[in-house]
Amino acid sequence: MGVFENKFHDNVVIASLDKLLGWARSTSPWFFQFGLACCAIEMMATAASRHDLMRIGMIPRSSPRQADVMIVAGTVTLKMALRVKKLYEQMANPKYVISMGSCATSGGPYWQHGYHVLKGVDLVVPVDVYIPGCPPRPESLIEGLLKLQEKIQSERPLTRKTA
């Protein structure tokens, strides 16, 4: 889009379809607030006024049917793991998962003797972006979200996937 600026009238835009779709799909992902533990507080702080999540287009939605991104924030226990899977299946395609914090990535500080802790949420749902930290700072969370936006941007939804 940038190469062709000022060459045509204002109401003509030339872009590749992939880039256009990428721009449309990536810049307003609504997140499913799946706050479980301490990372949920940092997620709330990121959504509050100092580090505002709404300026990158993210709004918290409580129903999985209305969300694009599921941010798993906090420790996933085995009792909860079955529900995580169910909620992930209830989300509509295209859907993405961000694993926030070290507990969701690999069990966190509870990896050694945690008999009831799931050692990483990627054992039940496929994860796109991992954000380390205990808890990750709001700036880390925003960087993770921007990385997810880059990833969505670079997807090519129109290409027929060959076997």
């Binding site: 420790t75 226990t77 009792k79």
Partner: peptide, 26 residues
């Protein structure tokens, strides 16, 4: 309840007294 049972007391029995403090934080 029990959806966030993270086995805090079991971890305390297997860590030293100093190492318990970060677990109490959480």
């Amino acid at each position: 309840i029990g959806y966030l049972h993270r086995c805090f007391e079991k971890h305390c029995e297997n860590s030293t007294y100093e190492q318990v403090i970060p677990y109490t934080d959480r």
